[in-house]
Amino acid sequence: MNLNFNRKIFSRKTVGLLATLALAAGFAQAAEFKVESVSQQDGRLLNAQFANGMGCQGGNQSPQVKWSGAPAGTRSFVVTMYDPDAPTGSGWWHWVTANIPASVSELPAGGKLPAGALAINNDAGQPGYGGACPPLGQNHRYVITVHALKVEKLDLPPNATPALVGFMSWAHGLGKASLTLMGSR
């Protein structure tokens, strides 16, 4: 490659300016897509979102999740809640919901899913939400993520795992927004 030729076409300033503009455009798009929840207080899960069992006495109610600013071309969403601090070596999927229509921008607390949405088995092997229940004395992070997808629905087998939904969400993703809430007992 002839570096002298390339230097004549693109100066360092031009390359730097192009890189800055591309980075700014990416940040602007990422800043628009956001997720929030009223099912929290001061950044912590409410008791309603804790499990009712396994040593916890909560409401086992899925959190309210609302999102806005999805990328252009979004045709469906996937909503997940994941505990990266679970003592399993691989974290714990509390909630995975796929094939949420693009016209939906909120899931109510403990509410039923919109038509067409699919509740995936959580890591306890149950479809739908499985409440938080960190070991006594530990503070865990619960990451709620909304994935915007470029497909109307994921073609999933009946026994789809959270890992498969995650893989397919990345493969068909346009963007994602996350909110991390804390939980302890």
Rank of each mutant, 00 (worst) to 15 (best):
Ser37Arg: 05
Gly131Arg: 00
Ser76Asp: 01
Ser90Arg: 15
Tyr129Gln: 04
Ile120Gly: 03
Gly173Leu: 13
Val165Ile: 09
Ala148Tyr: 09
Pro127Ser: 07
Arg7Phe: 13
Pro71Met: 12
Gly125Asp: 14
Leu118His: 02
Ala160Gly: 12
Val78Gln: 05
Ala48Tyr: 08
Gly110Gln: 03
Ala115Thr: 14
Leu45Cys: 13
Asp123Lys: 06
Asn2Met: 03
Val104Ala: 02
Phe5Tyr: 11
Thr180Glu: 01
Gly69Pro: 14
Trp170Lys: 10
Val96Phe: 04
Thr74Glu: 13
Ser11Ile: 08
Trp92Val: 05
Gly89Gln: 12
Gly69His: 10
Ala98Met: 14
Asn139Glu: 14
Glu36Gly: 01
Ala19Val: 14
Pro157Cys: 02
Asn47Leu: 03
Ala98Arg: 15
Ser169Trp: 00
Ala28Gly: 02
Asn4Ser: 06
Glu106Arg: 09
Ala171Leu: 10
Val96Arg: 00
Glu152Asn: 07
Tyr82Gln: 07
Leu18Glu: 00
Gly128Lys: 09
Ser103His: 12
Ala30Phe: 01
Ile120Asn: 01
Cys56Glu: 10
Tyr142Arg: 04
Phe50Pro: 03
Gly89Cys: 10
Pro135Cys: 05
Asn52Gln: 15
Gly59Phe: 01
Pro87Ile: 14
Pro87Cys: 06
Arg141Ile: 05
Ala177Val: 08
Thr97Pro: 00
Leu118Asn: 00
Ala177Gly: 11
Ala117Pro: 01
Gln61Thr: 14
Pro84Leu: 06
Gly55Lys: 13
Arg141Cys: 07
Ser103Gly: 11
Leu21Gln: 00
Asn122Tyr: 12
Pro158Leu: 00
Leu113Asp: 01
Ala22Phe: 12
Gly111Gln: 06
Arg12Phe: 14
Ser62Lys: 13
Ala171Glu: 09
Pro158Asn: 05
Gly166Phe: 03
Gln41Phe: 08
Leu3Arg: 11
Ala70Gln: 14
Val143Thr: 11
Ala163Trp: 09
Gln41Ser: 13
Arg75Thr: 06
Phe33Leu: 14
Asn6Arg: 03
Ala115Pro: 09
Ala132Gly: 08
Gln29Ile: 01
Leu21Trp: 05
Pro101Ile: 02
Val78Leu: 07
Asp155Tyr: 06
Gln40Thr: 15
Leu23Tyr: 10
Ser184Ala: 02
Gly166Thr: 08
Ala70Leu: 07
Val96Leu: 01
Gly73Asn: 14
Lys34Trp: 00
Ala30Leu: 01
Gln49Thr: 07
Ala124Gln: 11
Val35Ala: 11
Leu113Ile: 07
Asn6Gly: 05
Gln41Gly: 09
Leu17Asn: 05
Asn60Cys: 02
Asn4Trp: 05
Pro162Val: 10
Met168Tyr: 13
His140Gln: 15
Gln41Ala: 14
Ala28Phe: 04
Ala22Lys: 01
Asp42Met: 07
Ser184Leu: 05
Lys176Ser: 13
Gly125Ala: 13
Lys176Leu: 12
Phe27Thr: 04
Ala31Ile: 02
Pro84Ala: 00
Ser178Cys: 06
Ser90Pro: 08
Gly116Arg: 12
Arg44Trp: 05
Ser105Asp: 15
Gly26Pro: 05
Ala163Asp: 12
Val65Gln: 12
